[in-house]
Amino acid sequence: MPKIIVEVMPKADLLDPAGKAVANSLQRQGHSAITNVRIGKRIELHYEEAPTPKQIEDAKEIAAYFLSNGVIEDVVSVSVEEL
C-alpha cells in the first residue's frame, strides 16, 4: 500500500521526559556510549494509489497544521514510501 510517512520530533530545546527515561534505563543497562535519547512520532498516511504531487503537498500542509504543533514540535520529514 502506498504511504506518506510523516515524522515529528519534540523541539531540540524542550524536555523530552519519555526519551530521558529511556536514556536513564540504557545507562543502567550498561550502554554507556549512548548519551541521549529523544522520542518522536512516525505517522503513516495510507493511500489506494501512489499519492499525486497535490496529495503530497496536502500531506505537508496536514503535517504542519494538524499532525504537529510548531510551538512544541518540528516536522522532520514528509516522505513517500514506495513499495
Binding site: 524536555l15 521526559p17 504543533n69 512544541i72
Partner: peptide
C-alpha cells in the same frame, strides 16, 4: 491553544 484562539502550547508537567 490548539485552535489558535490563544497563543503558545501546553506540554507534559516538568516533574513528569
Amino acid at each position: 491553544v490548539e485552535a489558535n484562539l490563544l497563543p503558545g502550547g501546553l506540554i507534559r508537567n516538568e516533574h513528569q
